[in-house]
Amino acid sequence: MYYIDPHVHMVSRVTDDYERMARMGCVAVSEPAFWAGFDRGSVDGFRDYFRQLTEFEPTRAGWSGIQHFTWLCINAKEAENVELSREVIAMIPEFLDRPGVIGIGEIGLNKNTMNESTIFREHLDLAMKTNELILIHTPHLQDKYRGTRMIVDMLLEDTRIQPQRVLIDHVEEHTVGVAREEGFWCAMTLYPTTKCTPARAADIIERYGDDRIMVNSAGDWGPSNPLAVPDFIQEMRRRGHSEAKIRKIVYDNPLEFFNQSSRFEFTPPDSAWDSQAADTDAD
């Protein structure tokens, strides 16, 4: 089955991971800007990171036939530095017209501080002024419930925001309802020990349905599995869910959400391979 991993930090992964993902059916990824494991010291550090996301990473993904899309921001952890955050937000428009950039993300909260909230609101303002989709990171562990409620509060206070253009990520059993009830999209992250397991993600689908929801690996430099979406597919099959239902969650839903971005130029896999074959024939 073809699938899309709508949240994976491929800059932290090796090229072999792209290849293994492609062999498992991955046809596209979207990569949000995130925390690199250390705080960057200047806006130029982010400028170089955005170049990597928009120039080299799509090329590297293409070596395995995977289409690469990206989101830009300063992440919630580094948003504690308000001065640097404002410099980065002012710089982001330099990259917004590049191919494959589909929105602002992953913005959000980390420790639910007022500085994080300030920068979150300023990211929302940028997204509204530039008509971008929004991808939101919700906090980890004990901070998640409070932070998700705070994020929804801030989204609702900005009357310009259209819920169907916002994706709230890393939802779990206690936050999926909070994210969905106001009409936002949401996503579940499949991690080995924190966030969701494939089985619990399948439980949430069975309980809340398959509309406006997707799953991702959020593979990065920490404990994570870039093949987690195929694990979810396998879990759903093991439970007897239809191929159409599974495909809706891992392929159709990401496409429906991403298609709202004018720069989401996706080539369906069959036509992509047909095109490659034609090129080969012409040689």
Binding site: N112, S117, L141, Q142, D143, K144, Y145, R146, R149, M150, D153, M154, E172, E173, H174, R200, D203, R207
Partner: peptide
């Protein structure tokens, strides 16, 4: 019950503070 996972999540969660802003 059918919501024990959600209840456990809430045991390990900070409370929401209304009017936090």
């Amino acid at each position: 019950g059918v919501d024990r996972a959600e209840k456990l999540q809430m045991i390990f969660s900070d409370d929401y503070i209304p009017n936090w802003s």
